[in-house]
Write a protein that binds this DNA or RNA. Structure first.
Lengths: 137, 137
DNA sequence: CTGGGTGCAAACTCTTTGCATTCGG
DNA sequence: CCGAATGCAAAGAGTTTGCACCCAG
C-alpha cells in the first residue's frame, strides 16, 4: 500500500530540471515545463518537487533573498551566488572542520554557501570602471 | 540629502531584536514588538529590517524550510539549526578553505550552515527510545 | 519648512490545499 | 477496480507597495 506511482508528469519534471542545469525556483521550473507541456499544473510541480526532495531525487537549495531553488545534482557540492545578479553555480565540495563549541547540538551535517561575483558581472563591472574613468578624465 | 533619520521605531526594533537573542523571523519580531508597542506597524518592521540589513546593523539568515530570520549579532559566526524542531543557535566562526574551482566566480565571502539536533530534542529522542524499549519488552 | 518615515490597507508573489476526476498498477 | 496523482481554483502565508499624514533635522 501507499506505493508511489510512476506518472509522465514526474518524469517530465525531473527531466526538465536536470536538462536546465541551472538552479530554478519552483516557479521558474514550472514556466519552463509549461512551454512544452501546458497541461501540467503548477500545483503538480510543487507537489512533485517536494516529494522528490524527500526521496532524495532532487535537492532544495535555500539562498538568501530568493525563493527556494531546486538542483537536479544530488551529489555533495556547494553553491556560490552572485551578489550582483543572483546567478547560482555549483562548485566542488569542500570539507569543513567541525566547530568545537556547538551550543550542545549534535552536528549531523552542514552546507557552505559562497558569495561572489559571477564572470558576466565581473566583465560588466570592468566596463563600468572604464566608462567611469573616461568621464572623469 | 537622503540623510537617514533616527526614529523611535528604529530604536525599538533593533533593541527588541538584540534583546530577544534568538533568530526571529520578521513576523515573530513584529509580534514581540507589537506586545509592548502596538502602534508600530508590520510594514515598518519589514522596511526597517531590510534597511538595517543593508546598513549592516542586522544580519539576514536564510535557512532551509523557514522564512528569512534576523540576527542582531553581526559578528562573523555560523548557525546551526535543529532538523527536528527548527531551533537556531549561534556557534563560533570556523575558517573554511576556499575551493580551487569556483566556476569563474570571484569569491567574496561564505557562510556555513550546520544541521543537527538541539539539546532538548536529544533528550526527547532519548526518552522516546526508552519508551519504545519498554513497549517492546 | 521638507522630505524621509510611518501606519494602514490593498496588492502581490509564492506555495499549499480541497475536491472531483483521471489513470497507473 | 482502487486509491494515488493530477488539474483547477480558491485559500493561505509572508512580504511589498501606494498614499496621506506626521515629525526629525
Amino acid at each position: 500500500m501507499t506505493a508511489k506511482r510512476r506518472t509522465p508528469q514526474k518524469g517530465i519534471i525531473l527531466d526538465t530540471l536536470c536538462r536546465m542545469g541551472s538552479h530554478p525556483t519552483a516557479g521558474e521550473l514550472y514556466e519552463e515545463i509549461h512551454r512544452s507541456h501546458p497541461s501540467i499544473s503548477r500545483s503538480t510541480v510543487y507537489r512533485v518537487l517536494g516529494q522528490m526532495e524527500e526521496d532524495g531525487l532532487v535537492m532544495r537549495v535555500c539562498l538568501m533573498g530568493s525563493d527556494d531553488r531546486f538542483d537536479g545534482n544530488v551529489r555533495q557540492h556547494n553553491h556560490i551566488r552572485c551578489r550582483r545578479c543572483g546567478a547560482v553555480a555549483d562548485i566542488p565540495w569542500v570539507e569543513v572542520a567541525s566547530p568545537c563549541e556547538t551550543a550542545g547540538y549534535l552536528i549531523t551535517g552542514y552546507t557552505v554557501e559562497y558569495t561572489g561575483i559571477c564572470p558576466a558581472c565581473q566583465a560588466e563591472e570592468e566596463q563600468d570602471r572604464r566608462a567611469q574613468k573616461a568621464v572623469v578624465s
